[in-house]
Design a protein around this nucleic acid. Structure first.
Lengths: 192, 192
DNA sequence: ACAAAAGTGTTCATTCTACACCCATGA
DNA sequence: TCATGGGTGTAGAATGAACACTTTTGT
């Protein structure tokens, strides 16, 4: 794949979201993921063509598709060199938005298997926010937020106490807005 | 003016922001205002033309330009009938964003004269948020937020105690991100 | 029995909310 | 002196942060 974010031009009659899904599918061979429009920006004219880019952010679950791993991994975006300045801005903005939304939506759902332990959930939060969280406070707030359902199952893995399995509440849509269940004092800056 | 939001097509080589400014200038005869991109959306094909709309929100100060009034007025957006569904969505989204940003930026600056009283500032917040705020709490939080500078002047108008005049801190840019100085428990939903 | 991760409560500091009266002025 | 809007403090509730030990399992 050439350096830079995957992109393409829309097809006649296609919605913007559909285009974004198609571009993603072509570049990562994954579909049915969470999609959100980010920002629309100009790019310098090349070959005498005026054009704009409509940026999207996509979350891909680590259990469906080619990304197979127990833990959420976060490819440090700083490591992405050889990309254009526009792409860099888009990515940085995406990270800010993602971190902010973590606090008041259930988008983390898209980064976890359908059923998961609280420790796994905390790991996801910690990797995205890039800082450690207090276990007891994290659990209390997550439970209190009401976005989780506890299942009756437990996960046994290794010689230690089994962990209770949770799932995200089924009646909530892909990116439901909730009463804030997390505030990140670290990067005090908010969304957009 | 025909019903609906003002719009136009970009000119070759023009940035998106420049287009937005031009459209605004043509429709309201005002410039040098706060501009922010909102969202990009598809519109149904008309006359066999596939097109998209890049929505912008603009704040116009009530002291410059044709809008002359001491008080901030808020034209209820519900009253805007005879507009398309796309426009309705754009406007509703704009209101949500504006309300959220009120809490952690200094954008209210663009709605007030260069120098203003705390009561005027509170009125601006109340009209935009569409609810009453507690005077003492509002003042305390605003002062504590550090986005204001107190001037040595006072405003005398009417037979009552004169009000201290404030201005927004000069060293802050048009829409600086600050530590949150207002949280609105009313519509708990945050920005996108 | 021990190693390893799961699970659980309390205290203290900070922040938010609700609320009522005195102050300075012009008429 | 009175009417008008400007200006101020506090107590109680709610929320957030810090912190260490017990429980359950597999080997």
């Amino acid at each position: 794949m050439p350096p830079g974010l995957p992109r393409d031009v829309p097809v006649r009659g296609e919605t913007l979201d559909a285009t974004a899904r198609r571009v993603l599918r072509n570049s990562v061979s994954v579909h049915e993921q969470y999609l959100e429009q980010l920002y629309t920006l100009n790019v310098p004219e090349v070959a005498n063509r005026w054009s704009i880019i409509v940026g999207y952010i996509a979350l891909v679950s680590s259990t469906t598709g080619p990304v197979a791993s127990d833990a959420i991994t976060w490819s440090p975006t700083e490591a992405l060199t050889h990309i254009g300045e526009s792409d860099r801005m888009v990515i940085d903005y995406a990270v800010v938005r993602l971190r902010a939304k973590l606090g008041y939506t259930n988008i983390a759902f898209h980064l976890l298997p359908p059923t998961f332990t609280l420790t796994e959930l905390q790991n996801a939060y910690e990797t995205i926010l890039a800082r450690r969280l207090d276990k007891r406070n994290f659990r209390r707030r997550m439970i209190a937020s009401g976005i989780l359902d506890e299942t009756s199952d437990k996960r046994r893995d290794g010689s230690h106490r089994p962990a209770a399995l949770y799932r995200f509440r089924a009646d909530l849509d892909t990116a439901t807005y909730l009463t804030p269940h997390w505030s990140d004092p670290a990067d005090g800056a908010n969304t957009t």
